[in-house]
Amino acid sequence: MTFWERYRPEELLLFSEQVYWRLFDLHNQAWWPAPIIALLLGGGLILATVRPTPARLRVCLGGLATLWVFVGFAYLNARYATINWAARYAVPLFVVEAVLLVAAALFPGTGRVRDHRRAWPGLVGPGLIVYAVILHPLTALSRETGLSGAEVFGLTPDPLAIATLGTLSLSGNRLPAMALSAAPTIWLLVSATTLFALDSILAWVPLCAVVLAWAALLNPR
């Protein structure tokens, strides 16, 4: 391969892949034992959404709202911003999403669960949530840090955004669900761009999550 073929337009990246992944390790250490609590919360989300009812869905949306605020400040603002000053500009996005989720949790209509949950669009939601809570942290096994550098649902943005899209795709109220999906989608696209620039194969994860979630959101079945 020649030099010119290797040349890639990643000029805007400020940090290395090693530093990026090690942030999760530092984050887990700093918040220990919060990763365990977050995993338990994630387990609760899985149970609640395997057989969703309107009340359960609304409780989940309220819970996710809290986590969006927490991740916005504790991860983006306090940790990610130490290596990427642009991360601070994403904090308002996380706060807006939290406010919208609270609003959704308070309005009885949004709790409506989609019909035909056995059809594939209905399975996307639980699939994304299970991936975000259980499988996504395991991707850390392929890295220098091992599981201590796992991206844990509820503490870090990608699995939170994936689980949120999964939860929203269960809603039978498609328009509000799509509006609420905007922020997680934007975040996951930013994350995919960052990971592509870092040359990480994991860049496909947020991208696939967005495609799957929107395929389900747009499908009325």
Binding site: L13, L14, F15, S16, Q18, V19, R22, L23, L26, R79, T82, I83
Partner: peptide
């Protein structure tokens, strides 16, 4: 120091 020294608060790095 671009990229190479951007290590945040990582004590090891």
């Amino acid at each position: 120091t671009w990229i190479t020294f951007n290590v945040g608060q990582d004590p090891v790095l």
